[in-house]
């Protein structure tokens, strides 16, 4: 069931300011179709340097559309300095609250606004800080640490609700949990490793078989392919071809996916590398 407030429903069913501003002063685009939601925010400043017009186009669920609509209402009539102070919590509050797993919709609004203002000021795009932990949604360890600290997130679900990290294939769950524990000052035990006592030959056979049966057919459908080049201890060298074309990070995701499958099906300590 939809756990939405009346205000969310109302903004979803009657969204304000849909479209694109002509000759905009600011443009902010976040998200992608692969991620499941995306927002394009445009605004124009009036002579008084206040936002005279703001419009949005959103691909996403009801709360994504409502958050975008709310955002435009909130920023119209404000100076950039005032608008800049709008946080994702403000957007959620404006809507009378959002379900926990939809908080990222308001975060998307805030990010689009930030980007649109940076565009107006001619500031360079923010570069990713830290190491990517969740490849499905391009979220880094620094992002997670910051969110845990600043927003007081306590669980994996909190992080997924806020940053989306962990909401896809789930491969990053352990790492996210570890980051949360580390930020809370809990020491992390090294996960237990070594695998079943396969001989090298058995291992190579199983890797080959897994690639053939589990991985290749799916890749080939997307016009890609994978080739086993070598197995050296626990290192599996592969060559990727084509690759799924949905987004730029598909190669990393793919490598991780192959690694995860091989780890579950063959041995826990395998590392996949591109040859």
């Amino acid at each position: 069931m939809w756990d939405y407030t009346d205000k969310v429903r109302e903004h979803f069913l009657n969204p304000r300011n849909v479209g694109e501003v002509e000759n905009p002063d600011g443009i902010g685009e976040v998200g992608s179709i692969a991620c499941g939601d995306a927002l394009k925010l445009t605004f124009r400043l009036g002579d008084d340097k206040k936002i005279a017009e703001a419009k949005f186009k959103t691909f996403g669920c009801a709360s994504a559309i409502a958050s975008s609509s709310a955002l435009t209402e909130m920023i119209i009539g404000k100076t950039l300095e005032e608008a800049e102070n709008i946080s994702n919590e403000n957007i959620a509050e404006f809507l009378g609250g959002l379900p926990k797993e939809k908080i990222h919709c308001s975060v998307m609004g805030q990010e689009a606004l930030e980007k649109a203002i940076a565009y107006y000021r001619g500031e360079p795009e923010k570069v990713l800080e830290g190491e990517i932990v969740c490849h499905c949604f391009n979220v880094t360890d620094v992002d997670i640490q910051r969110a845990v600290k600043e927003k007081g997130l306590k669980t994996l679900e909190d992080v997924t609700g806020y940053l989306k990290a962990g909401g896809g294939c789930g491969n990053c769950h352990e790492e996210i949990s570890n980051i949360i524990k580390a930020s809370q000052g809990i020491s992390i035990m090294e996960p237990k490793k070594p695998a079943a006592g396969l001989t090298n030959l058995q291992k190579i056979r199983k890797i080959e078989e897994t690639l053939e049966i589990e991985i290749k057919p799916a890749l080939m459908r997307d016009g890609g392919n994978i080739e086993l080049v070598d197995v050296d201890g626990n290192r599996v060298l592969v060559r990727l071809q084509g690759a799924c074309a949905t987004c730029s990070r598909s190669r990393i995701t793919l490598k991780d996916h192959v690694e995860a499958r091989l780890r579950t099906l063959v041995a826990h300590d395998l590392v996949v590398e591109e040859a």
Partner: peptide, 8 residues
């Protein structure tokens, strides 16, 4: 994704 709580 959005209906199931998962994002995929």
């Amino acid at each position: 994704a959005c209906t199931s709580g998962s994002l995929e």
